[in-house]
C-alpha cells in the first residue's frame, strides 16, 4: 500500500470514529444505522441483480432468514451473539443455494415471478410455523450484544454496523474486480455465450444467490439484535421492492450505486416527514424522474443496463 493511500485510510478511520461522538441525537444515529443495514442488504442484491442480472424479487427472505436464525439461536440455544450472526450468514447462504437451484432454468420475467413466490412462501412459513417462530406475534426482547459487560448503546451499534458495512463493501468491490465479477457480468450480458466460452453458468448463478444471500444474512443477523423485535411484517415483499428500487436508482452493476440508492431511499422519506401524506408520492416522482433522465441510475456510467445486445448486433448486421 502506498503511503498516500495509507494516510487516506487512516484519516477516514479517524473520521468514522470521531463523527458519531459528535452526533447527539439518537434519531440521527438510528438513521445512520439503518442506512448501513440497508447498505449491506443492497450490496447482496447488487451481486444477484446488478452484477449477474438475475431478477430477484425475494431478497427480503434472505434478510428475514438471517434475522430469525440469529434471534432464535441466541434466544433458544443461548448461543453467543457473534456466533448467531455468523450462522445467520451461513443460513441465508444456504437459502440462496436452495433458491438458486430451481430457478436455474428460468429467465427474465419467469425468474422474477419465481423469486417473488419464494419470498411469499418464506413469509407464510414465518407466520404459520408457530412453534418455532411465534407466528405473526414475532419475537420480542431479542438479546442485545454487550462488550466488557456493557450493553450496546446506539453509538456502539453504529460503530459495529459501520465496521460490518466496510467489510461488506470491500468484499463486494473485490468480487466485482475479480474474475468472479467478470463472470457474473458475462452471464448478465449473454449467458449462452458465456457457457460456450467455458463457464459453468449454473454454478455461477447459484453462487450469485449464495453470496447475495450471505450479505443479506449479515444485515439480518445484526438487525435482529439491534431492533430487538422481529416479526414476519419486517420482511415482506415491500422490502424486496424497496431494495430493488435502491439498486436501480443508484445504478445496477456499479457496486457503489446501489449503496447511494440505499442512502437516498432510507433518508428521503425521513427528510420529507413534515409532509407525511405526500412523502411517498414525492419519492415516487423522484424515482420516475431519475429513471427518465438517468435510466442507468445515479452512479451509472455510459453502460445501458439490461439492454439486449443481440438486437444491437442484428442492427449493425443489417447495415453491412
Amino acid at each position: 500500500m502506498s503511503k498516500k493511500r495509507l494516510t487516506q485510510y487512516v484519516l477516514l478511520a479517524v473520521l468514522l470514529v470521531l463523527v458519531p461522538q459528535f452526533v447527539r441525537s439518537d434519531y440521527a444515529l438510528h438513521l445512520m444505522i439503518m442506512v448501513a443495514i440497508y447498505g449491506i442488504l443492497v450490496l447482496g442484491l447488487e451481486i444477484i441483480l446488478g452484477q449477474t442480472g438475475l431478477f430477484s424479487l425475494g431478497h427480503a427472505a434472505f434478510f428475514g432468514m438471517g434475522s430469525y436464525t440469529s434471534a432464535l439461536l441466541v434466544m433458544r440455544l443461548g448461543m453467543p451473539i457473534w456466533l448467531g450472526i455468523v450462522l445467520a450468514v451461513l443460513a441465508s447462504g444456504i437459502l440462496g443455494f436452495l433458491l438458486g437451484f430451481p430457478t436455474l432454468r428460468l429467465r427474465g420475467d419467469y425468474l422474477a415471478i419465481a423469486t417473488l413466490g419464494f419470498g411469499e412462501i418464506f413469509g407464510l412459513i414465518l407466520v404459520n410455523w408457530d412453534s418455532l417462530t411465534h407466528g405473526p406475534m414475532g419475537i420480542p426482547g431479542i438479546t442485545r450484544p454487550e462488550i466488557f459487560g456493557v450493553v450496546f448503546d446506539k453509538r456502539m451499534y453504529l460503530y459495529l454496523i459501520v465496521l460490518l458495512f466496510i467489510l461488506a463493501l470491500a468484499a463486494a468491490f473485490r468480487i466485482s474486480n475479480s474474475f468472479l465479477g467478470r463472470t457474473f457480468r458475462a452471464i448478465r450480458d449473454d449467458e449462452d455465450a458465456a457457457e460456450f466460452l467455458g463457464i459453468h453458468i449454473s454454478k455461477y448463478k447459484i453462487l450469485a444467490f449464495i453470496i447475495g444471500g450471505m450479505f443479506a444474512g449479515l444485515a439480518g443477523g445484526f438487525y435482529a439484535h439491534y431492533v430487538t423485535f422481529i416479526s414476519p411484517d419486517s420482511f415482506t415483499y415491500e422490502d424486496s421492492e424497496t431494495l430493488l428500487a435502491m439498486v436501480f436508482l443508484g445504478g445496477a452493476g456499479t457496486v457503489i450505486g446501489p449503496v447511494v440508492g440505499a442512502v437516498v431511499l432510507v433518508l428521503l422519506p425521513e427528510l420529507l416527514s413534515f409532509m407525511v401524506q405526500w412523502r411517498m408520492l414525492v419519492v415516487g416522482v423522484i424515482m420516475v424522474l431519475v429513471m427518465i433522465f438517468r435510466p442507468q441510475g445515479l452512479m451509472g456510467g455510459g453502460m445501458k443496463f439490461l439492454k439486449i445486445k443481440k438486437k444491437e448486433v442484428a442492427r449493425i448486421g443489417e447495415k453491412e
Binding site: R182, A186, D192, A193, G198
Partner: peptide, 23 residues
C-alpha cells in the same frame, strides 16, 4: 468457437471479454 452473429459482452472491455474465456 465463434458465433455467426457476434456475441461479445457489451458492458465489458475488449480485454475483459477475452479474459472471461480463460476459465
Amino acid at each position: 468457437r465463434t458465433f455467426q452473429n457476434i456475441r461479445l459482452f457489451s458492458s465489458m472491455t475488449v480485454l475483459e471479454n477475452i479474459m472471461i474465456s480463460t476459465h
